[in-house]
């Protein structure tokens, strides 16, 4: 058969390119998988020497009280190293909760303004400004907190520590604000115009429509934004490292110095001997942190995709 339809072009190049692209796709996934694998591989090794109980606390002999006392502390450099995760988780939440709260209130308000009230021109100027805010490196926010805000807050509230969980959460709220606004605004704009029209046609005012129609319809998207924002707040490193004082205390006082999981890794990984219990303990903290944020991300992803399905119908 030497009909012209059978004359093969040289397809080697094409074949090679497709395989190369496949390889790139696979290696991207592989790299992502490796993050899981390596984090947990190193984390699990902590249990070669430590016990799960160590992660909560240890019975340590207290010279002062002259008896064994159950201590929940992270104290890696000590005669009896203690690796309790409780103060770190406590610190992370003490920063992330207020930060999420602040940025949720501000962010949803902002999103309502952008989506329902702002004229086109204002919107078109505000959106890029938000992108610029999102683009500020977190080390810069941390620095601004450290250099200007911390003293101001201390003077305002007369706190004991200049650097504390509240200062950290202010900074973190600034860092998660843009993503909070963007996602909840997207959710509100995805609410069909017909719904608003129906509300207005029934004689509802603008705010009645917002509260009665737009927000309920967008509630899943807004919750996804809040969950995602909480995940980001838990994962923020540089701001908390610079602004929270880094004292690993179990406390509920928002004006106390705290140490978050992220800051703990950042503060100690530099001076740790590879293969030591301390080293694996830090990976364990990383794995716990990763699990927290992973679950939160997954959760918000599910909420978002549910919303998309609903709106498509």
């Amino acid at each position: 058969m030497d009909h012209k339809l059978f004359k093969k072009d040289v397809h080697w190049g094409e074949w090679l390119i497709q395989k190369a692209l496949l390889l790139a796709g696979i290696s991207s996934i592989l790299i992502i998988a490796l993050i899981f694998i390596f984090l947990f591989r190193e984390a699990v090794r902590f249990f070669h020497t430590g016990t799960p109980m160590d992660l909560i606390g240890k019975w340590v002999y207290d010279d002062w009280e002259e008896r064994n006392v159950f201590t929940m502390m992270w104290q890696s450099i000590s005669e009896v190293p203690k690796y309790s995760l409780i103060p770190l988780i406590c610190g992370s939440f003490l920063v992330a909760f207020p930060a999420t709260l602040i940025s949720a209130v501000l962010g949803i308000g902002c999103a309502v303004y952008l989506s329902e009230i702002a004229p086109y021109k204002v919107r078109e100027t505000l959106k890029p400004a938000l992108e610029l805010l999102a683009g500020i490196p977190s080390v810069v926010i941390g620095f601004v907190m450290l250099a200007f805000i911390a003293t101001f807050v201390q003077d305002l509230f007369h706190t004991k520590f200049r650097l504390n969980a509240f200062v950290g959460s202010l900074g973190v709220s600034l860092a998660v604000l843009p993503i909070m606004i963007t996602i909840s605004e997207d959710a509100m704009r995805a609410v069909p115009k017909e719904l608003r029209d129906a509300s207005y046609a029934l004689g509802a005012s603008k705010w009645q429509t917002i509260f009665g129609t737009v927000l309920p319809a967008a509630v899943s998207g807004i919750s996804a934004a809040v969950i995602l924002g909480f995940g980001r707040a838990l994962g923020e490193t540089m701001i908390v490292l610079m602004a929270t004082g880094n004292a690993a205390l179990v406390t509920g006082n928002i004006f106390s110095s705290v140490r978050t999981m992220t800051a703990n890794i950042a503060a100690e990984l530099g001076s740790v001997a590879q293969g030591s219990e301390h080293y694996y303990a830090l990976f364990l903290v990383g794995a716990v942190l990763f699990t927290f944020t992973f679950v939160l991300n997954l959760f918000s992803e599910i909420v978002l995709s549910k919303m998309r399905q609903k709106l498509r119908m």
Partner: peptide, 11 residues
Amino acid sequence: PDVNVAALRRM
């Protein structure tokens, strides 16, 4: 099976 689809589409 051995038809060159690209050549076909040119034709």
